[in-house]
Design a protein around this nucleic acid. Structure first.
Lengths: 244, 244
DNA sequence: CAGTGGTCTAGACCACCGA
DNA sequence: CGGTGGTCTAGACCACTGC
């Protein structure tokens, strides 16, 4: 395999740029199971240190593009087998990856007293004012999910967010970025109200995702409950064995 | 913070031993939000290189015990907030972590022709013989899940596995270890048969987890479909934002 | 501006795989 | 046995934080 000898200089660290270059080469010129050039070959070919090569490869391995076999080499993984790990995405991006067009209908957007369990999750006093945003989420014009978000007040300065826009984007514009979240996924039967909104029969199975979002400093700023239609939505994820 | 100056020598790499030592110190002497000693202090205190310190800390960060803030320091994370990422565990271990005692009732254990979708997942011909293992899984004596596993034939030598034991353990004894899996989680309404086995009303919501397990070489050896009772089971996971 | 974590280098030795 | 990936070191500079 021939490997180009130049790295595009971007603002990214060198090992990220190298990882991108390798990913491109893998997509275009390598097949599943093919070995990558050895680390020492890449080191020489790109004129970087072996450590940089290894960090680039580690990045690819984390993304599931390649896997290492000690004493043998690094090989291209089968992308059909290796799903990406769970990622923190908004509804719109999630739908886009499924080839669906996302839209939204706002049901509620106001300040309300925080219920007990959400208050615990957000670390605020029960009954204190939080921003409530309730939206029906559509994919290709048909109901897909019912989303109830509660956010710390004051994240958007004085006002309320634009309920039509991406919450994530608007939070970022105010210097608040959700970097981690913890979620619990359960199955539930839809109530009459929920079923009506989602255009489903009463009692239909739905996937319920309860998510608490944290900033990079570990501060909880958002708690969201989302009910997905069981017949339209699946949550896909890759899992790894514990180091043991 | 005082840090011990000696690393227990085990068979583990030095950075793993250091990570364990740091984890122990965090548990015993540090509180949430406290800063760890700086990397250069740890380097001096333990007599290792800074790179080794950084790899140990990276391990702790991956496990959710600490988080880094550039230019500031490394801090102890709130374990209540940071759930572990999704892990590859068997039913017994999963239940143990929830404080429940797992048991099992075997419904079926035989060789049968492989259905089309499973055949695709396992990379075998449709209708070729695969090992089918169907079990009702109990937690504290009450039904929790209905598990249908299909495995490549020949993994257990000539015979069948002991359906009462841990499948994972028996696979490991035959040199096959599932290192990665990809899953799809959906919600579904229980059929009459399923509901009866799980001691649930017909149509009750259930969490369905479809999992395909791979060895470290990327070979698919197992496909399992599990129906969890919606009223008893939740799938908990942490998600991170994409590097972007 | 001093101190922190983030990146990068050059070189060394080890554990493991396969011919 | 040579070559591979895995670990470890010492040292350097950069980007960022917070006083």
């Amino acid at each position: 395999m021939e490997i180009s000898r130049e790295l595009v200089r971007t603002g990214s660290p060198k090992y990220v740029a190298l990882a991108n270059a390798l990913a491109e080469q893998i997509r275009t010129t390598l097949a599943i199971g093919d070995p990558l050039p050895t680390e020492r070959e890449l080191q020489a070919g790109f004129g970087v240190s072996r450590d940089t090569v290894r960090r680039a490869i580690a990045r690819l391995a984390a993304a599931g593009l390649v896997f290492n076999v000690q004493g043998s080499g690094t090989y291209v993984a089968d992308p059909a087998q290796i799903r990406k790990g769970p990622r923190l995405t908004g509804f719109s991006q999630d739908m886009a990856e499924r080839g669906l067009r996302a839209s939204s209908r706002t049901l509620d957007c106001r300040i309300e007293p925080c219920p007990a369990d959400t208050a615990r999750a957000l670390g605020v006093a029960e009954g204190s004012g939080v921003l409530l945003l309730r939206r029906l989420r559509l994919a290709d014009q048909a109901p897909m999910a019912l989303e109830t978000a509660r956010l710390l007040p004051g994240l958007f300065g004085d006002g309320l967010p634009d309920p039509e826009g991406s919450l994530d984007t608007q939070l970022a514009e105010h210097g608040q970025r959700i970097m981690r979240a913890s979620q619990t996924i359960t199955a539930t039967n839809l109530t009459a109200t929920e079923a009506h909104l989602l255009d489903q029969p009463v009692g239909a199975a739905a996937l319920r995702v309860d998510r608490v979002g944290f900033t990079d400093r570990g501060r909880a700023i958002e708690a969201t409950e989302t009910l997905y239609r069981g017949d339209r939505y699946g949550y896909e994820t890759a899992v790894e064995r514990d180091p043991s």
